Computed example of a mutant assay.
Amino acid sequence: MSDGILEVLRPYLNAILIGFGGFLVAFILSQVVSRVLARSLGPVWSRFIASLLALALGAWTIKLILDSTGAAGLLVVIVTAITGAFAIGSERIAGDLLAGIGIFVGRTFSAGDYVVIAGQEGRVSNISLFVTTLETVNGDEIYIRNAEASGGTVINYSAHPGHLISVKVPLPVDQDLNVAVEAIQNVVKDFAPELSGKPYHEPTVVVETAEEGYFIIEVRAYMTERLDSGPEKTRLFLLAVNAIKEAGLSLGPVE
């Protein structure tokens, strides 16, 4: 009787063993390929190719199960697929997979870019087939599903060199505004020499409003793109304030 039971269960056991072995090989091979290709292609593309290889081996394993075990293998594959679909949400995974391929093909952003994706801001540290990872200015990592990353508006600050920053300096209305503007323009013109000569990247000084006895001077300049713009904003503000003081003007309240 035990021989009969074993004979009945053999196709199912074979299907399970083939599936386990195939997916184990796919996992190990994808890890090896990722490490080998990382030296020449970089971490993002190496992981992408390794993921595609793992998917191909997974599909080949399913075909091998069906070819070797017939209806029994088909039953195992169907049960596994249904269970997996309910357990991890196959529709979401498929959507993330397709979106991940779209990101690689469309090149909307790539690793190292400073972006706003799905309402989150940071530098792209990794793009996999399913998830895009951002590094924030606080050192945190944000994991965004690729379906969300590609489904909304993407702002890529790294698409063109330079990132615009601005600071506002209040100047009492009894001070000479022309002298202040000229002094600031002279000190900020070389704020980012590496961007000099590029179109639309020259620093500007704008005065549009006056509030409660003060002119509001806005100083705009481009900086080389980086994760934290705070230090550069501070430097720009100090340059403007010191220029006003060195021009003999006062920043104190109106008498």
Rank of each mutant, 00 (worst) to 15 (best):
L227A: 08
R235T: 08
G84I: 06
Y12V: 07
R10D: 11
M1V: 14
V167S: 01
F48V: 02
S30N: 08
T209D: 12
V137S: 08
V124H: 05
V115M: 03
V124Y: 00
Y222I: 06
F130V: 15
Q120T: 10
I216S: 01
L251D: 00
E225P: 00
E255F: 14
V169R: 01
P170A: 03
L6G: 04
S90M: 14
F191H: 05
S128T: 14
V179C: 05
G89R: 04
I216K: 01
G106A: 13
G106V: 08
V205K: 04
D140W: 14
A15S: 14
L37G: 03
L6D: 09
H163N: 15
A147V: 12
G248F: 05
G252S: 03
L74Y: 15
G70T: 11
G58F: 10
L251C: 01
L134N: 01
T133F: 12
E141N: 15
R145F: 09
N186Y: 09
S158L: 03
L55A: 13
A221W: 02
T80S: 13
G106S: 15
T83C: 05
P43C: 09
A54C: 00
A149D: 08
A247F: 11
K233V: 09
A50P: 00
S250Y: 01
G70W: 04
E232H: 12
D67K: 12
G89I: 09
A243V: 04
T204M: 05
Q31M: 15
A94C: 14
G22R: 01
F20M: 13
V187E: 11
A210K: 09
V76P: 01
R145P: 14
V77Y: 00
R47Q: 06
